[in-house]
Design a protein around this nucleic acid. Structure first.
Lengths: 191, 191
DNA sequence: CCTAACCCTAACGTATGCGTCAGGGTTCTG
DNA sequence: CAGAACCCTGACGCATACGTTAGGGTTAGG
């Protein structure tokens, strides 16, 4: 946590009309259940597990927006920025690049109606669901291969002698359960 | 497939001793069940779904080796190169970088015994198994979120009117099953 | 011998997602 | 008012895994 952020007050400047120049509490203390409305970029970053640089980048790309700026041009983020950045992170984990996300955001912003926006979003999510499911299948297959390989290799640990060299593995008879070694094992011995 | 590779013969040059300069069939036809022993880099690349450049890179990094070279310095790969490259690809899919794989290969080559090599390999595979399982968990969670989001969004499609603007979504009452929208939906509306 | 289709080496280019200065303000505490 | 701890805006740097171009041989068929 920003050690020194705990008792801060910043003056804001309203975005639309009257530039509220009067000092007003914006970033309150974090003690107990007391939660403030606005936060600095460092707070946002820490809350979502990203760096300040990353948040800056997202803003540059139009993926997040500060709710307002302090008099000193500090970015002041509202709570919904947390939701937004977490959303970005999830999309990244789903395999979207930042420019994919940029396109998605634009599509949402440009949508004439909520219904249309929902349709666009659905299209992307359907595609990603399919991709995710095939990734899942692939990873499950790899998981099985790893397990089979580890089982195979455990026999090497228990039944093989220290003098045996790798190059004689092809003629090894110590793996009754595995007539042929798993690919993850076979591949390591080729060269 | 290399369209023109189908009737090739290359003279080889032996690696160790007598440089067998006599012409000898090396890359045979691919028709029917006839399979040859050696292949050119392009054939290997196509067989594993990588580019020639990628194979070259793997060789540079010491991850694969051509069995021999033709008189004209063409790389001639044996069948086990297929096993090897597929192994490399699987390791990549498991999240190892090429230099991780390089280290792994060196570790295997340097291993004094088969048993020791097996132990080293096991260590890597155990770590990757754990990683893979947590990735699986993460992806499953994302899959569920996608499904929940799509279900939520389908209500938008069926129950929302075209005139409704996105900004009024926060007060929408059309989602009885979802008191609060899924994060993948909520995040798309913040800005 | 000619040519299409490959292959070789060397080396620079590319896209992504931040990391990392540099140079200079801002806030809040004491 | 001093100082620590942040924040701001550029802008260049970086690692990965190849892509691409350049310039030049090689193979095998016709």
């Amino acid at each position: 946590m920003s050690d020194r952020n705990s008792h801060r007050h910043l003056a804001i400047v309203a975005p639309g009309s009257a530039p509220d120049a009067s000092a007003r509490p914006l970033v309150a203390s974090r003690e107990g259940a007391e939660e403030s409305d606005l936060m600095l970029v460092g707070d946002l970053a820490k809350a979502v597990g990203k760096t300040v640089r990353a948040i800056h980048l997202y803003e540059e790309l139009g993926l997040v927006r500060a709710h307002e700026r302090s008099k000193g041009r500090y970015r002041l983020f509202a709570q919904d920025a947390l939701v937004r950045v977490r959303w970005i992170i999830k999309l990244q984990n789903l395999g979207l690049s930042l420019s994919d996300i940029q396109a998605l955001v634009r599509g949402q912003n440009d949508a004439a109606s909520a219904k249309f926006a929902a349709m666009r979003l659905s299209e992307v999510y359907v595609a990603k669901l399919v991709e995710t499911q095939s990734k899942l299948a692939e990873l499950k297959a790899l998981e099985s291969e790893l397990q089979a390989s580890l089982e195979f290799l455990s026999t090497c640990h228990s039944a093989c002698e220290s003098e045996v060299l790798v190059h004689s593995c092809p003629t090894c008879e110590r793996h009754p359960e595995h007539p042929t070694p798993p690919e993850l094992v076979a591949g390591s011995r080729v060269n």
